[in-house]
Amino acid sequence: MTQRHAIAIDTDNSPPRTARRLRWYVLLPLCCVGCLDSLPGKPTEADRYRRPDTIMDFATLYKQHCSGCHGADGTLGPAPPLNDSMFLTIISDAEIKQVLDHGRAGTPMPAMNQKQGGPLTDQQIEALIAGIREKWGAKSSATSESLPKYAVSVHANGQPVGDPIAGKQTFADSCASCHGEEGRGDHALNDRGFLGTISNQALRRIIITGRPDLGMPNYQEAGEESGAGKPLSSEDIDDLVALLSSWRSAETDESK
């Protein structure tokens, strides 16, 4: 600094001074352009329109395409919560992708892949799955081995494996206190409007994970609070799904 000052003094009135002035003539306009560039009206990359199929940000994708049914934060929506670490522990990426690609026939879950008429590309679906895992996935080390498996097992004819007769007893023990005798009452499950619009897969999943957001216990709590006093076994769950499924077909038969 001082050195430069010194130079300025001993070169007074000599050519470098004009050079310095010249520098200002160059710098000032550049400065102005710089200021203009920082004006609030200057469009930034964020203002640029992006085709919906180039959006990869999880929060945006989830908000636009899923929050309507699965809830703003993945809970308290009409559809099963995605923000549920037990659910995310038992379901595999491939299974999530299968749901997103094809939807669930006969339920409100729509196909989301462009190849199936939905709005999303393969990459966007991958981004969603990764985002769901990262944001809501299990933080603990709980592994899926210690939990009932996600997928519902079915016979060759599509009927779920499991014994509806045995299911009746399990239901009376573990579920009827809230859902009523034979599934009829205030929180009725034995109802065509309910069973006719939900898949067995979702039934199984809800029995396993419960709906913590709505006060529905998971398979451990429901079993432990029942007469049996222990978590529902994988078999119990099969039987319950078979029971609910049999109610569905009974209702359909009646209505014919």
Partner: peptide, 21 residues
């Protein structure tokens, strides 16, 4: 349809069938 959540007050306390609705 896919981007506006159903208000939570309309979800809490609803029966399984109403949730499907």
């Amino acid at each position: 349809w896919s981007g506006e959540p159903v208000p939570e007050s309309m979800i809490k306390g609803r029966s399984p069938k109403q949730l499907q609705g």
